[in-house]
Amino acid sequence: MLRIAAIAALLSASLYAQDPAALCEAAQQAVHAQRPEEAERLWRQAISVSPRYFPALFNLGLFYESRQQFSDAIPFLVRAAEISPRDFNSHYLLGACYQALGHGDDALRAWRTALGLNPKNVRLLQVMAVEYTKGRYFQDAAETARRAVDLTPDDPNAYYLAIKSHQDAGRYPEALEIAARAVSRFPESARAHFEYGFHLQKVGRVEEALRELERSMALDASYEEPPFFYGDLLQQHGRYEEAVVFLRRAIANRTDYVPARVALSKALMGLKKWEEAILELNEALRFDPRHPQPHLLLSQVYFRLGDEQRARQEKDLSLKLRRENPAALEAVQGRNFPAR
């Protein structure tokens, strides 16, 4: 009897070892029991038994992805996606692995397939919009982000993503239109009013823009961006006294706001308040010591004060920092997404 039982057990084990579904089930149990090495072995065993067994391929890919072993995950996910081309998750996860490895174009290709399978997946649309932007595919980013807005009209972040994407693509009228929709949908949102004001200014409706910025500041006095933008606009038009008031407000809301400190120092230079400008520029450098612009402005202040030696030192430092990071002060060109 015992012998019969032993034979049955052996037979069962042998059948189990040849059954990819059973192996996968055991692997899942090993995962839940915190035995990852065993799970990995069982999935590999399942694949060796049945190389086209989708659950094993996919789960092993997912397993490696979750452990951030992205290079290990990719071959299994590629095979999973080939075997089951209509499986959204394989394509999505494959894209995630490529993205983690810095292969943005491959990630986007995988995600484009996933999106074809599930065109209303808002989260994927948003992730893709970000990745398109990172790859400088600004037009694709804009299209994708707009679809996300249309699918989730109650999500304010979808609007902000779409506004930014259209701005990057140089599509200012459309950015304005989305911002107008955001204000209409979220009338109590300081951010929505700020975005609307920002883009009103971009298309030349300056008076309306200023009203929106004021509304934004009224809704949330602690929000630093409206007073910065307002003050910088005044500074650019030579209205230095007024600019100083708003730029100081922006800095009060966020002390490490380097662009606001730079703009404030320019307004102070316009007012010939050299010592105050030096203070602001040094504060900016305290928060961002490798930023070339404060050094450049310090060079100009010292030059105006007649200290040419110090001016030259600051200039040389600014030029050195520029050379070390040439893209720091420069926008990049957009491009079209390559199909292959």
Binding site: Y160, L161, F198, Y223
Partner: peptide, 10 residues
């Protein structure tokens, strides 16, 4: 407090 970092995405 809503998401409002304009330099990019939240």
């Amino acid at each position: 407090r809503e998401s409002r970092t304009r330099a990019g995405l939240p």
